[in-house]
Design a protein around this nucleic acid. Structure first.
Lengths: 214, 214, 214, 214
DNA sequence: TATGAATGAGACTTCATTCAT
DNA sequence: CATGAATGAAGTCTCATTCAT
């Protein structure tokens, strides 16, 4: 490359006027919509700018490059999600916390399934994963805190387990999104079965409430 | 033009001379290696041809376009896998069949993890998924046949279940590949737990071999 | 930047077919003409390609980037020049060698003054100077060999002297080019005076060998 | 548009309030520093404004376009220099005047070598050279006045000679700047040799003043 | 059939300049 | 007057694909 100084993917400038804040929001939403509609293949900065009703220059005023846009979008989506996810830590038991987490994830993914799926994918590209490391770490920390609860069987390798849980969660929910599912209850139940199974939480008499023993 | 006429993705010709067959194989392997090394980002037809030691023209002789190349590669990888996977149907019980399937999948993915992951992703792109529908259907049929065995709890929606199983399988194994894992046993066990859990197969005394009761 | 791997400025590929050789030559000549006409400001790869009657792609097939094109052009011009310049070493005396060098330089610069001037400037840009280091070194070596001749006063710092000689040579000839001069004899004489003066070669009876006074 | 309407390059307004004067000075100094640091390549109006701590808008308040900024900078640097250079005319002899001029030039160039070099180059761009014609003429007039002194050999073409002197002067001093030299004495001596040589001022017994022969 | 040179649409990005606040 | 957000023309470069040899 001729002029390829590696640039930060962080937003270029913090908007100082409310007009700018609006512009940034508009651009992000436009990006989201393009991503939903045409996927990463069909997304390009000119199109995003056009759809946002601004010049390309404006886009580059706030995002140093295309990837930074994706990162920002990921973060925007992640922010809401993370706040809700943290609520899981208030649950009394590990299992309830996990259910909470699942519910939140399912909810998040089902709100804008196409977008969520597209981002899920992009987030794995090294260039981007790198930028998102912090957010990702925060989310994983939540999981870790759940896993150490008393009612969750101890896991040999926390790292691996965390990765796996996230992967499975995403996999099922993404697949659901792809099929256009919208029944949250069913989806949550399926995810739960997989995750609980993975964790070795055997629920021998799950469905039928037992009558009191003599 | 970059992406103009929609063309068939099927290989342009079935090579009938062994020389041609050899060429196709060479190209495919080159594509595989490029995919492994540089990911989809870094893969391009010129590079693949060069690495294969043929002119780009030759590549286009056998593959009408880039996607066709990916499809063919997917199929090549899928073929071996599918044969082994079919073996699962010979297992006496559903659970054993599932274990068999898992073992085969894990084995497959761990052979060339980077390639497998890259393909997993590409296979979801609509243009490609479409072409791969048949192979995918065949694989899913195997799963279906396993799921109807007596020792597997009946599933409400076969379609969904199948999708989910595949998704979870891939998710965990891909994550493992990404981390560079290579312990097949551990990986199989984790996948099993998730899948069996998902299917509602509770295994109340799984790990510790019980001592004979008096 | 996102994709800015620093690329070599060396030509990308050696043309293997004579058609390609022709293309490269055409592109270079087009670049030369654009440079002459519009200067570096007005030169851009699209224009060069258009003027050469080829697609931009072809340009980038042989030159990884714009700078590489400049470098190649510099080298093309330098090659002829250098061969002639080396001839100076065959001159019997240092002063004659220097005159030879001056004559050659003047000749070179006056052939395509605008081009020569434009290149002179570009060659100082660090990115390019770097690539041209070898050629430059070779030329300076010629000068060095001249400077150590017996009839040239010893110089304190060879490096500096060499630089200065080249700088002065260029400066005067470029200025002449800018004014549209074409009288080689006069130009050579002016340059000689400056260079010989710089070197401390006093030529008390320069032009007409005086006959002994009575 | 990038380069559309040809506009006057003169500063848009003569600042009459000291605040404005201050702003202009700040902008010019910022431009100087950017030019020194990043060269013309890396200089752009937004950056200059930012470095000056003003909005781009303000920059355009005082300079109708980028070139006007360069011109103004050139003039700022030239002004000091010119005043000092005029002092040469007070010298008793032409040769002393020339030495004076050389000393002043060397001094000027060595104060901010990077800036001086960058400007030297820019000043040759036609768009700018045009605006600077007046200043340049004034400087050349000084040289002309020196050249007609009795102790300077008559020159055939005053124009050419003047150009050449300036070119040589610049060439050597720029080269020195590029190498990071800082020994003014040595530099002045080298320049003198070249210029005096060019003018045909032979200094047959330069160093040791010979005693009169019998 | 094989080759690889040629193509050009289109993606990304920059930066001089304008203008509403 | 100052500001800085917005603009978009223009330039650089890539890569899937074609086609003459």
């Amino acid at each position: 490359m001729t002029k390829t100084k590696r640039q930060s993917l962080k937003p270029r400038k913090i908007p100082q006027q409310s007009r700018a804040e609006q512009t940034v929001a508009t651009i992000l939403e436009a990006a989201a919509r393009v991503l939903e509609t045409k996927g990463m293949e069909g997304m390009n900065t000119n199109l995003v700018a056009q759809r946002a009703g601004v010049g390309v220059g404006s886009l580059y005023q706030y995002f140093p490059n295309k990837d930074a846009l994706i990162v920002a979008l990921s973060m925007r989506e992640g922010a809401v999600f993370f706040t809700e996810a943290e609520g899981a830590l208030n649950e009394p038991t590990g299992q309830k916390a996990l259910k909470h987490l699942i519910a939140v994830s399912v909810h998040q993914q089902l709100r804008r399934p196409a977008l969520a799926r597209a981002l899920d994918f992009e987030e794995n590209r090294p260039a981007i994963a790198n930028e998102l490391a912090a957010s990702k770490a925060a989310f994983r920390e939540v999981i870790r805190q759940i896993l150490v609860r008393k009612d969750i069987p101890p896991q040999l390798n926390m790292e691996t387990t965390t990765d796996d849980l996230v992967a499975v969660l995403r996999a099922i929910v993404d697949a659901a999104g792809e099929r256009g599912e919208s029944d949250r209850g069913d989806l949550e139940s399926r995810v739960s079965r997989a995750l609980f199974g993975y964790l070795g939480i055997v629920d021998c008499q799950p469905e039928k409430p037992q009558r009191a023993r003599k």
